[in-house]
């Protein structure tokens, strides 16, 4: 009898140990892995690489569209990102504004299509690529202000954290999982509050309550992202 009791106690202990271990470790890889979304067909096959891609050092005139990009700032077109919750698609007038002066590509099929929309005064029905569920309130402005302006990090790096390496894509495609655990994994990290050259932060509250900015081991002030459910869900 004692054998059985001992055995069952042993089993229970094993179960408790293994389940708490698995609950503890399984998360990291689960949420940070890249998760390539489906390819999306857009009304115009917009070449992000051509616009935002790196210049070809061997081609200073940048004449060969296949070889290099123009390093246009993401926020030149997605201008709403620093002002509001959505990054937005630029109004057609912005596309035309440049392209009416670029004679070299004026007769290419894509640009012809673009001008067709413009002449019909019809908005291009772009499809959403990064479409969060309706109950998630992601705010571009705060992330841009926090990381581009205050931390003075390169725009493409900051945008790329969620949107992937768009400068290498033609039509954008989702690269990150965008699942909640993935978002949270970043919010739980310590981020440097400010860097020299970045926008000064004033007496700003980085925290909501419990997670106040603290000094890390290197003596740099760091803070975590908001971690209330109602920061993003309401």
């Amino acid at each position: 009898m004692h054998r059985f009791i001992r055995f069952s106690i042993l089993l229970m202990g094993l179960f408790a140990a293994s389940s708490s271990f698995s609950a503890d470790v399984a998360l990291e890889p689960l949420t940070t892995a890249d998760d390539l979304g489906p390819a999306i067909e857009q009304p115009i096959e917009f070449p992000h690489n051509r616009h935002a891609g790196l210049r070809n050092p061997n081609d200073p005139s940048n004449s060969d569209p296949l070889k290099g990009g123009m390093e246009i700032d993401c926020m030149y077109c997605h201008t709403y990102a620093r002002r509001g919750s959505v990054a937005g698609i630029p109004p057609l007038q912005k596309c035309i504004g440049c392209h009416q002066n670029i004679e070299s590509v004026r007769e290419t099929p894509r640009i012809k299509k673009l001008f067709e929309y413009w002449e019909a005064k019809k908005a291009v029905p772009w499809k959403k690529v990064h479409d969060l569920p309706d109950f998630v309130r992601f705010n571009h402005e705060r992330h841009i202000k926090r990381f581009v302006f205050q931390q003075n990090r390169p725009v493409q790096e900051v945008c790329g954290a969620c949107h992937g390496d768009v400068k290498t894509m033609t039509v954008a495609r989702r690269q990150k999982s965008l699942a909640m655990g993935w978002c949270v994994s970043c919010h739980e990290k310590d981020h440097v509050v400010s860097v020299p050259g970045g926008m000064p932060v004033g007496s700003q509250a980085y925290w909501y309550g419990f997670k106040k900015p603290a000094l890390n081991s290197a003596g740099v002030e760091v803070a975590k992202g908001p971690n209330d459910c109602s920061s993003c869900h309401y």
């Binding site: 979304g37 489906p38 999306i40 067909e41 709403y80 002002r83 509001g84 919750s85 959505v86 937005g88 698609i89 630029p90 109004p91 057609l92 007038q93 929309y117 413009w118 005064k121 019809k122 908005a123 291009v124 029905p125 772009w126 499809k127 959403k128 690529v129 990064h130 479409d131 969060l132 569920p133 309706d134 989702r174 999982s177 965008l178 699942a179």
Partner: peptide, 26 residues
């Protein structure tokens, strides 16, 4: 209803011309 990340299902709000004060989401 929409409980997961969707790709390419909805169309983005976009304009042909927009005044400075008209921005999506504001």
């Amino acid at each position: 209803g929409n409980t997961s990340v969707e790709d390419g299902k909805e169309t983005v709000v976009s304009y042909v011309e927009a005044a400075e004060y008209v921005a999506p989401g504001i």
